[in-house]
Amino acid sequence: MLTKKQLDLLAFIHKRVQRDGVPPSFDEMKLALDLRSKSGIHRLITALEERGFIRRLAHRARAIEVVKLPESLGGTPNAGFTPKVIDGDRPDGPPPAAAIQTQAAQAVDLPVMGRIAAGVPIEAINQMTHSVAVPGGMLAGSGQHYALEVKGDSMIEAGINDGDVVVIRETNVADDGDIVVALVEDSEATLKRFKRSGSSIALEAANPAYETRVLPSDMVKVQGRLVGLIRTY
Rank of each mutant, 00 (worst) to 15 (best):
G52Y: 00
L35Y: 07
R231W: 02
G80S: 05
N161H: 13
I45L: 10
D153K: 01
K84R: 14
V165E: 04
V67F: 06
A11Q: 06
M128H: 08
Q223G: 15
L191P: 00
V134A: 05
I230V: 11
K38G: 07
K221V: 11
T190L: 01
R62P: 03
G141C: 06
R115P: 10
I54M: 07
L10E: 00
V227T: 03
A105S: 14
K15P: 09
I122T: 13
G159M: 07
G40M: 05
L31G: 11
A147V: 04
N126H: 14
D92A: 15
F53L: 03
T171N: 08
R19P: 02
M155T: 02
R62Q: 14
P24F: 00
F12P: 09
E71Q: 10
S199H: 10
P24W: 00
G93I: 05
M29W: 03
R51Y: 06
V166W: 01
T3F: 03
V150D: 06
D109P: 14
G119A: 03
Q6L: 05
H42T: 13
A189Y: 03
G119N: 04
P94L: 13
A209N: 15
R19T: 10
V180D: 02
S197A: 15
D87Y: 12
L31T: 12
I230W: 04
E71Y: 05
